[in-house]
């Protein structure tokens, strides 16, 4: 069997793919995410982003005091189009069901 150390299991990104991105001159969290696909699967980086940052910091490739995560965007939970379609165009100001 091959030896593989996974950073991102959703998109099958191993330490080897991270090395490849670094070799191509990509250096920031955002660039590595986009090139390797890390953090773009169903977990949206919840499992893998901190592992990547830890790896970059431990190698001196990111500054621990300055490094920032990639942009947090909704949805943070899986939500269906059907549920979202139930939200009216402008939610009422007062509480209550509609």
């Amino acid at each position: 069997m091959s030896h593989r150390v996974f950073v991102c299991r959703c998109e099958d990104v191993t330490t080897h793919e991270i090395e490849d991105a670094l070799d191509r001159g990509l250096s920031t969290v955002e660039e590595i995410k986009r090139y390797t696909g890390l953090g773009t699967g169903p977990c949206q980086g919840k499992e893998c982003m901190c592992t990547l940052v830890g790896l970059l910091v431990s190698r001196g490739l990111a500054d621990a005091d300055a490094v920032q995560p990639f942009t947090a965007r909704p949805p943070a939970e899986a939500v269906t189009f059907g549920a979202l379609a139930a939200v009216p165009e402008s939610p009422p100001e007062k509480g209550g069901a509609s």
Partner: peptide, 9 residues
């Protein structure tokens, strides 16, 4: 699509 899920916006 009603029971499909949004991943990211």
């Amino acid at each position: 699509a009603r029971s499909l899920k949004v991943l990211r916006q």
